[in-house]
Computed example of a mutant assay.
Amino acid sequence: MWQSFSRLACWLCLLLVGKYKAANQRAIQTLEKYGATLMEVDVDGTISYPEPQVIAKDNADKHSRPKPISIEEEQFMRVFYENKLQEVCKNFHFPHKVQATALIYFKRFYLQWSVMQHHPKNIMLTCIYAACKIEENHVSAEELGKGISQDHQMILNNEMIVYQSLEFDLIVYAPYRSIEGFIDDMGEFCAINDDRLQILQKLLHGAKMEVDKIMLTDAPLLFPPGQLALAALRSANQVHKVVEIPEEHSLSSEF
């Protein structure tokens, strides 16, 4: 069963890579056609492409055209702005569920688009705004923009294109709630006293920090929240040693 799971994970990884390559190639084709890639988005979600360059000047301007970025460079940019997204959420004291939802929105958006077509900073802020709405932690676009010295109209302009790119599938399940459920079950099952309960809370905190790291990878697009929560708990437990796991009890044996 472990081999089947590994094959499935490899297949899903290849599927993600294929989507990133396709988005990158579409952006390169736009660059070749228009001489630019960045799109203008109206508040109703309408996209405006750059004006095509004059054909007579095409050969003369080729050397001065911007160069497309590689898939690896796109990944670096996405990770950079995912870290920024977490920083913004922490500065606004948003709950973990808002941060996780915004990150998933951001990741799913760039399965459809290249960072060359829509600036990650704009999409990052719009994803936070949308996540606050769906998670009932509403913050106005004006308040969000003012808090980070950005024009709130940009957030509103990009809101519809984000929803469209997500195909209006806005419900997100994050590992944080699963971790809390596992910790509660451990406490009830083991009948932990007050001293051990404090250690269990440290495990909870450590596991959430591990999830914060996991959320910056492609794992949330590949695995269900429960598996990510168990992986985070296992990693945190190596530090806090709340549960004794025999060395021979490897991950492969669990499957």
Rank of each mutant, 00 (worst) to 15 (best):
K62E: 10
R65G: 02
P66V: 11
P66R: 09
I69H: 07
I69E: 08
S70W: 07
I71P: 10
E74C: 03
F76H: 14
F76T: 10
M77K: 12
R78P: 01
Y81V: 06
E82S: 05
K84Q: 12
K84W: 11
K84I: 03
L85Y: 01
Q86G: 08
E87A: 12
K90S: 15
F92P: 08
H96Y: 13
V98G: 03
V98C: 04
V98W: 04
Q99K: 06
L103G: 02
I104G: 06
Y105M: 02
R108Y: 09
F109W: 01
F109C: 01
Y110I: 03
Y110A: 03
L111T: 04
Q112V: 00
W113G: 03
S114Q: 10
S114V: 09
M116C: 07
M116Y: 14
M116T: 12
Q117T: 05
H118C: 14
H118P: 05
K121D: 15
L125R: 02
I128M: 06
I128Y: 02
A130L: 15
C132D: 11
E136A: 08
N137R: 11
V139A: 11
V139N: 00
S140H: 02
E142Q: 15
E143C: 09
G145D: 02
K146V: 08
K146G: 13
G147C: 08
I148H: 06
D151H: 03
M154F: 04
L156K: 07
N157E: 07
N157C: 14
